[in-house]
Structures are given as C-alpha cells and as structure tokens.
C-alpha cells in the first residue's frame, strides 16, 4: 500500500498538466495538433461546441502553445523536446490535422475529415464516419475501422509497418492496395479485380463509389470485414 502511495506522489511531483478549452462552431470546427513526442488521443465529446485539450508531460524542455484563429480553427503546437500526451475531445464533426514525430495517434468516433501523420509510431482510427481519412506512418502500423461513405476517400499508408482496414460488409468502394515486400490479405471481400499482381491489387466492391487506398513498402496489408 505504501509503495502505491509513494509511486503516486512521485508521479504527481514530476508530471505537469496542461488544460485549455475553446468554443468552436459546432459544424465547422477544425483542430490541428503538432506534437514532438507522445500520444495524441482525440475523441468526440458530449459538448458539440467545445474543443477541450488536456495534456500531461514530464518536466522537460517541451513547450505547449494553443491558439485559435479568427475562423475558429484551434492549433496546438509543442516545441522543444520532451514527451507530451494529449487527450482531446472535440465536436464529432470536427476536421482534424494531427502530426507527431514519435509516439501514437488514436482517433475515435468522429465524423469530420481526419489527417493523421506520424514518423515513428502507430496510428489507430476507429468508429469513424468520415468522408475523408488520410493516415500515414513511416515506421509504425496504421489501422482504420469505420464506415465507408459514398464518394469518400480513405488513404492508409506506412513505409515499414502493417496496414489494417476494417470495413462494413456492404461497403461500396474501389480498392488500390500496394505492398512491395510484405504481402496482402484481401480475402474478406469478394472483389472484382481489375489488376492483380503480387505487389499491386486494384479492384472494386459494389459499385466502387468510395476510394480506398492502402500502401506499404515493407509491411503487409490486411483488409477485414466488420462482423
């Protein structure tokens, strides 16, 4: 018991907290986060007109800046070095632009456009109902699970990691999947193939109205059907 208390005290003594909230237009809110190292978690909040940013970081040289421009777009930027972990809630329809050098990006239950980029770490996107998703990791896995909207565009890329896409059984999409060295598992859907080589597959499911693009140079690609 005493060990737990000591640990908790030590943690609270070294950890710093950052908290800000911004009022935003409910239907057109935008958030940009630029982080050096750490996790960025963004999820839909109950409040449809607020972006609430909470962050924890250890005492280090990292500085967090948060501002809102005249159009209502919120930008959070970490400069310097150090790990900062963000937990952010936004209106569900918010458009996101997230960048982290190292760590992880997790986005859940949103309906706006999502652009997520990380150099070294995983990107996990789940419960989305968005018409535009771009997720790109250089050295990490990328996974997406969500709706595929007609005329939507979904691009998942990783240079050396694994790419996973979990789509509804009735998803209507055109697929382009390319893996130079890691192989592909696309067996979950009965596709109509236009091109099929070991490294590049192009085909469609349904009328092919949405666009799904999966790319990895060294990793593997897995297409799953949502149960």
């Amino acid at each position: 018991m005493s060990f737990v208390v000591v640990t908790a005290l030590a943690h609270s003594a070294s950890a710093q907290a950052f908290s800000r909230s911004f009022s935003v237009p409910p239907e057109t809110s935008e958030l940009e986060v630029v982080n050096q190292e750490g996790t960025i978690k963004v999820t839909a909040g109950a409040n449809t007109a607020k972006i609430i940013i909470n962050a924890r970081y250890n005492e280090n040289a990292a500085k967090i800046g948060a501002m809102q421009n005249a159009q209502g777009k919120v930008k959070v930027e970490v400069t310097g070095q150090g790990t900062v972990d963000f937990e952010i809630t936004v209106p569900a329809s918010s458009d996101l632009d997230l960048l982290s050098y190292k760590g992880a990006i997790v986005v859940t239950n949103l309906a706006g456009e999502v652009r997520a980029r990380i150099t070294d770490g995983n990107i996990q996107i789940a419960g989305l109902r968005s018409h535009r998703v771009e997720a790109h990791s250089t050295q990490g896995n990328v996974s997406f699970s969500g709706e595929v909207l007609p005329s939507g565009s979904y691009t998942l890329k990783s240079y050396s990691g694994r790419v996973d896409a979990t789509l509804p059984a009735n998803a209507d999409f055109k697929l382009s999947a390319a893996s130079f060295r890691g192989g592909m598992d696309l067996g979950a859907f009965q596709m109509k193939y236009d091109k099929q080589t070991h490294q590049l597959v192009e085909g469609s499911h349904g009328a092919g109205r949405a666009s799904v693009s999966l790319w990895t140079q060294e990793g593997s690609i897995h297409l799953h059907r949502k149960p």
Binding site: T138, K157, A178, F180, L200, Q217
Partner: peptide
C-alpha cells in the same frame, strides 16, 4: 506501372 507507382510512393515518402 507497378514499379512506377512504387517509385512515386517512395519519392512521396
């Protein structure tokens, strides 16, 4: 076309 796409993707990376 496959290697053309691969080369483009790597430049993009």
């Amino acid at each position: 076309a496959v290697h053309q796409e691969m080369v483009r993707a790597l430049y993009s990376e």
